[in-house]
Design a protein around this nucleic acid. Sequence first.
DNA 1: ACGATAACGCCACTGAGTGGCATAAACCTA
DNA 2: TAGGTTTATGCCACTCAGTGGCGTTATCGT
Lengths: 233, 233
Amino acid sequence: MTTQPSPPSPAAAAAPLAPIALADRLPLRERKKLRTRQALIDTALELFTERGFDGTTLDDLCEAVEVSKRTFFRNFSSKEDVATAPLHDMWTALLDDLESCDPGGRPVLEMLQDTLLATLDRMTTEDWARRVRLSHRLAEKTPSMGAHGLHFCDRTSRAALAILHRRLTLADPYDLRPRLALDMIVAAFNRALETWAARPGSGTRAELAAHVRDAFTAIPGTLTLTVGLRDET
Amino acid sequence: MTTQPSPPSPAAAAAPLAPIALADRLPLRERKKLRTRQALIDTALELFTERGFDGTTLDDLCEAVEVSKRTFFRNFSSKEDVATAPLHDMWTALLDDLESCDPGGRPVLEMLQDTLLATLDRMTTEDWARRVRLSHRLAEKTPSMGAHGLHFCDRTSRAALAILHRRLTLADPYDLRPRLALDMIVAAFNRALETWAARPGSGTRAELAAHVRDAFTAIPGTLTLTVGLRDET
DNA sequence: ACGATAACGCCACTGAGTGGCATAAACCTA
DNA sequence: TAGGTTTATGCCACTCAGTGGCGTTATCGT
């Protein structure tokens, strides 16, 4: 199955570079690029987890993947970038899904929740969840990774807001509510990610989705939550 | 007014180092340290605004302030850090205020809003608002600064959550609501900051506070906001 | 006035990230 | 299937952020 028609059987494929697999009726060059990209991500997550983010130099990584440092920077914008790629891919996919979303009478916040869950459902790349888990655990230990992650969440939010303004009947461009709705989605997702990565569970995508749903349902109660001062004796 | 009693009149103070002023019955050494710190912040904001963040090297900055690079890194953890210091100070002050807050029957979210506004009211350092404005405008142009800013918002949220758990009657440590409440506060504040920095207004602290109040009031409506699909003909 | 204690300056070093240019591989067309 | 074009890659030299060590200077306590 899935035999290439025209390309004269490159066959030069090395050993552990199986992934990507599906979804490629792509030109050979593109596939190679994707393959080294994926190899860089996987090896990075592995090395960073073993020796620590700061304990691994880019030279180490590039040597392990047998790629020049120059090539690394053609695929990723920074050392942090390669290690946060899995989540980055998801947020990018969300933007794509927002292009074809439909509020259909529901509140915007609810639509965004459903869209994110749908996006999550589409992250079917082999082992995506495991990569996200490794990535998130690294991010908790490595400030610069955490910062980088938050940053592209922010960029995604802005891009998403632009899409909403283009596709929905949002009159006032200064109305903070749609922007805050996106912030809430991002916040809820990140909290879900935290608890999911912390719990000892097997870490499947389905479990993550369940945590995300829980976080979403917690949102309304957040506004009314009332507690007292603790007894300080 | 406010003449120093014991110190044998240092008088070596250079020209534009007036600030700090109040609140120092501090030992001379501390005051000097604070003074160079402030000089670094102000000069950094100035140079970064003029020549751009990437167009200014730390050597440039250190030379301008007449300080060694080693000294710079004793005061700040990174190049981004010095340029985001004003807001960083505010978030730190918020943690302080949270140590003595009291829900008094109000919802937690509301208490947090009031506390943040109170903290904002206490940022009385000379020209604080102007610095924040410069800093934020730089952060919008400089990804690494934006990332750094988001990062310490995140760290502050975590620290704040710990304080809440210690001081308030929050039974379940896994309850996401207090954490989400903090996320909402941070998000609302950042949105307020954005609009405040974008508007041509004079940029006073009072104006910022007004924007923050607006953002806070927009929160409940965020959950119910409903719009339709735009007509795509 | 005099030790103790910081803060500072200087220096050498690692490692992230960039620009330029030559090379090789994949693509396309005849 | 040969030949020209496109595109990714490798290599090299370079800038600059950030760190560690150590000698020096300035403030503090008594």
